[in-house]
């Protein structure tokens, strides 16, 4: 009983703490940027893998649509929550600009991929793949640089 109620309290605390709280230091901001880049990287690389699968005809359209849609939603959520973070000092401004731009590239790339998959347009899928691959590598460098 006591365990259940404390679990409920813990859960609600986590849900509150999980949402992006205010960031007061540049180091804290870097950590948030690192987390956001990690999630974007995961989304972009998933997009690349799905594009490969689509081009080889290795999966059915409903699967591809759902899978791309899943990571596109993730990337959009990361992008909007990162955009609402206030950089504590101007020192963080370049990092903000970089991650923000890469977030935009990721969501765009995934949107193009989704459109291409749905239309069965393999040229569009190939273009989206190339863009996501490039974005992924850049995100990788951000992740390494903010560790």
């Amino acid at each position: 009983m006591r365990r259940t109620s404390s679990a409920v309290v813990a859960l609600s605390l986590l849900l509150v703490a999980g949402c992006a709280g205010p960031v007061r230091t540049d180091a804290g901001y870097r950590e948030k940027a690192n987390q956001s880049a990690l999630h974007l990287l995961s989304a972009a690389r998933t997009g690349v893998a799905l594009a490969d699968i689509a081009r080889k005809g290795d999966a059915f359209t409903p699967y591809l649509e759902t899978s791309v849609g899943d990571v596109e939603d993730d990337a959009l959520a990361v992008r909007s929550s990162f955009a609402t973070l206030q950089p504590p000092t101007p020192v963080s401004d370049p990092l903000r600009a970089r991650v923000d731009a890469l977030a935009e590239h990721t969501t765009h790339g995934l949107a193009h991929l989704r459109i291409g998959v749905r239309r069965g347009d393999m040229d569009a899928v190939a273009r989206a793949r190339a863009a996501l691959l490039l974005t992924g590598d850049r995100l990788d460098r951000v992740v390494e640089g903010t560790r």
Partner: peptide, 25 residues
Amino acid sequence: PAGIQVDHLSQATLPVVVSLGKVGL
């Protein structure tokens, strides 16, 4: 190695789809 995290069931299926295609899926 690719830095993909599993947040969705679809990502958990990737190893199967990549290596075995539609049948695997």
